[in-house]
């Protein structure tokens, strides 16, 4: 875990200029993640959680505030090929096999080939036997596994996941969540994940950053105290349900306070 990055986000604001005037996507967002930690960003659509994740990846530049990744800016970390990212729509190259799709991230980064590590990752994400398959021959879940393996192949110090299992059904999502936990524990990489699913966030995270919409801001940071490895048994336990319910409550109150109209007349119904 010593090679992982800690994250310090301080007073980050992001304003987008649109035809209808400036839109505040993020307002005074601050939180920290220790090296090797797993943090989820949850919130309604429009809460800026994707914008925040993209800012960590240097795909967006905050209007004000600072983001420190182990003492450096996201841009510096990107130049050093130290970030890995998996997208909601796996974004695989349809003309490449599983193997070559995973190797692609190293190729892009200009890193030397590492066939052994590619093979190791294929094993790790459970795709042995599908090395030569093209994305069209894989199921949605398998494609997301390839996407995660590709994010890991550069041996990044920070893993960013943008709703990686958003398009999958409940059962498959649960299975892949447990696999992701196993991979994360194996690799020990600091991970930030955007998700819509409260259960997914509670199952995987050390802490959950709950955000509200219009403007996007942090409402509360909920710690998740469960011991690891967390398993299917935990998923059925009362304490798990209670924490999920609490996160959902925070989300609901955040949404109510940001309800359209803004006058606050419909709060407390």
């Amino acid at each position: 875990m010593d090679h992982s990055l800690d994250i310090a986000v301080a007073d980050v604001c992001k304003t987008f200029a649109t035809a209808a005037g400036p839109v505040e996507a993020l307002t005074d967002v601050s939180f920290t993640v220790p090296a090797g930690g797993f943090v989820s960003l949850v919130g309604p659509s429009g809460s800026g959680k994707s914008t925040l994740l993209r800012s960590l990846a240097s795909l967006e530049t905050p209007t004000s505030g600072t983001i420190s990744l182990g003492g450096s800016t996201p841009r510096q970390r990107v130049r050093a090929h130290e970030l890995g990212m998996a997208f909601q729509d796996s974004a695989l190259l349809p003309w490449r096999s599983v193997q070559r799709n995973i190797a692609f991230a190293r190729e892009m980064a200009g890193l030397p080939k590492d066939k052994e590590y590619v093979d190791e990752l294929i094993e790790l994400v459970g795709l042995r036997g599908f090395e030569k398959s093209r994305p069209a021959q894989l199921s949605g879940g398998m494609r997301q596994r390839v996407s995660i393996a590709r994010a890991l192949v550069t041996r990044p110090k920070l893993l960013l996941l943008d709703e990686p299992f958003g398009a999958l059904d409940e059962m498959l999502r649960e299975k892949l969540n447990l696999e992701l936990q196993r991979i994360w524990m194996h690799e020990g990489i600091t991970t930030v994940m955007v998700t819509h699913s409260v259960a997914e966030a509670v199952l995987l995270s050390d802490a959950i950053v709950v955000m509200s919409a219009r403007p996007g801001r942090v409402v509360e940071i909920v710690d998740v105290p469960f011991a690891r490895p967390r398993d299917a048994e935990l998923l059925g336990s009362d304490e798990f349900f209670r924490l999920c319910a609490r996160v959902s409550d925070v989300l609901r109150s955040a949404e109510a306070s940001a309800a359209p109209g803004g006058g606050g007349a419909d709060v407390g119904v």
Binding site: L59, L83, L93, A105, M108
Partner: peptide, 13 residues
């Protein structure tokens, strides 16, 4: 766009 994002995140030319 997604492939371009991937290029940007991996720091590729």
């Amino acid at each position: 766009e997604e492939w371009e994002d991937l290029r940007a995140v991996t720091g590729g030319g």
